[in-house]
Design a protein around this nucleic acid. Structure first.
Length: 349
DNA sequence: AAACCGGGGCA
DNA sequence: TGCCCAGGTTT
């Protein structure tokens, strides 16, 4: 196990030399200014926030001034920062503080979290920076740093990993300098342990970083899994009669591609073969597999395995073939075909 | 075009 | 509790 006190000691020393010590909310560092800066920084970079912060505190220098301001004014001061729910929550929280906390921010974690717009991480940032109270934070920077230093695999948004990260963040708290510790973590993540191309050669934690040891600095943290849509497989048969015609099949009246003409389709190769031998005069063994085609729907991915076979024709014995039709390739444009089917047929002519 | 991200909201 | 979303910007 990595000696955790080493990490905060090393990072605080790094912060003394390379950290940001002249941010506008650090001078003076009042609880109101810390709170305002943390809300502004939630989805916005420091370089953008500084000018807005200055304008905001010039107009509304303390919590009661914010509470008494008209919402129009607050939103106007926020204008350009985006995510305006933050401004509305900030304003509402200021009024609640006047009503319930004598016009101050509460000093307790639970009371802070109870205010709109303040969650556990923002509450920790306020506690540590406003009053030097030991309290962990877990913003995107800290998550990234912890995942790398401790080599944690898996997307940090999952509840199990997030819980693990909170425990780690708590274990790293130094005995003193709580405000600096919070700022050090944010600065470290923002300027050195960056998402892309972290400056590992300059890193004060290099010798104890699991990701560096394993060459996985660029692979961690594990990215959020893409919207893994459910995947379905379809085997489509491109049956060619050798005279320029292909066999189309009308789809059922309901469901995807309802009533469109498509290629004979089956869930797997076995059912495709059974259907073929019942309906088609030809040699299924002569089927040639074409490259798989992925077609994306809004709610699932269809993985199409096409198979091309030249055949003699339909079996006469099968009477019910109203839904099967030989079509000259030249006439395909007259029919409404599903886009991937049209693509397939264009590729194979 | 897609990833990003703390908090809110809802089952 | 756990899961997903809204909201603008960045890559």
């Amino acid at each position: 196990m990595i000696p955790n006190q080493d990490i905060s000691t090393r990072l605080l020393a790094w912060f003394d030399q390379y950290g940001r010590h002249d941010l506008p909310w650090q001078h003076p560092r009042t609880p109101y200014r810390v709170w305002l800066s943390e809300i502004m920084l939630q989805q916005t970079q420091v370089s953008v926030v500084t000018a807005y912060f200055q304008r905001f505190v010039d107009a509304l220098p303390n919590l009661p001034a914010l509470a008494n301001a008209r919402q129009d004014k607050v939103l106007a001061l926020w204008s350009g920062l985006g995510y305006y729910a933050r401004a509305r929550n900030l304003h509402a929280a200021a009024k609640l503080c006047v009503e319930h906390h004598n016009g101050d921010l509460p000093h307790e974690l639970a009371a802070l979290i109870a205010l709109p717009g303040i969650g556990r991480s923002t509450a920790g940032a306020i506690l540590s920076q406003a009053w030097n109270t030991p309290a962990p934070i877990l913003d995107g920077n800290v998550k990234r740093v912890l995942c790398r230093v401790f080599g944690i695999e898996g997307w940090p948004g999952t509840p199990a990993i997030e819980k693990q990260l909170w425990t780690l963040a708590e274990s790293l708290l130094p005995d003193a300098r709580q405000a600096d510790w919070t700022q050090a973590q944010m600065d470290f993540g923002a300027t050195l342990c960056t998402r892309h191309n972290p400056a590992c050669p300059q890193c004060p934690l290099q010798m104890l970083c699991v990701a560096w040891r394993d060459g996985r600095s660029n692979a961690l943290p594990t990215p959020k899994p893409g919207k893994t849509l459910p995947q379905r497989d379809a085997h489509m048969l491109i049956l060619d009669d050798g005279q320029g015609r292909v066999l189309l099949q009308r789809r059922p009246p309901a469901g995807i591609w309802a009533a469109l003409w498509s290629l004979p389709e089956h869930a797997n190769n076995e059912t495709a073969q059974v259907w073929f031998q019942r309906h088609i005069d030809g040699d299924f063994g002569a089927a040639r597999a074409l490259p798989v085609l992925i077609h994306g729907f809004s709610h699932y991915r269809l993985r199409i395995q096409p198979q091309l076979i030249t055949v003699n024709g339909l079996r006469c014995a099968v009477g019910d073939n109203a839904d099967l039709r030989w079509i000259h390739r030249a006439d395909l444009h007259t029919l409404g075909l599903p886009a991937p089917v049209r693509k397939l047929l264009e590729q194979t002519q």
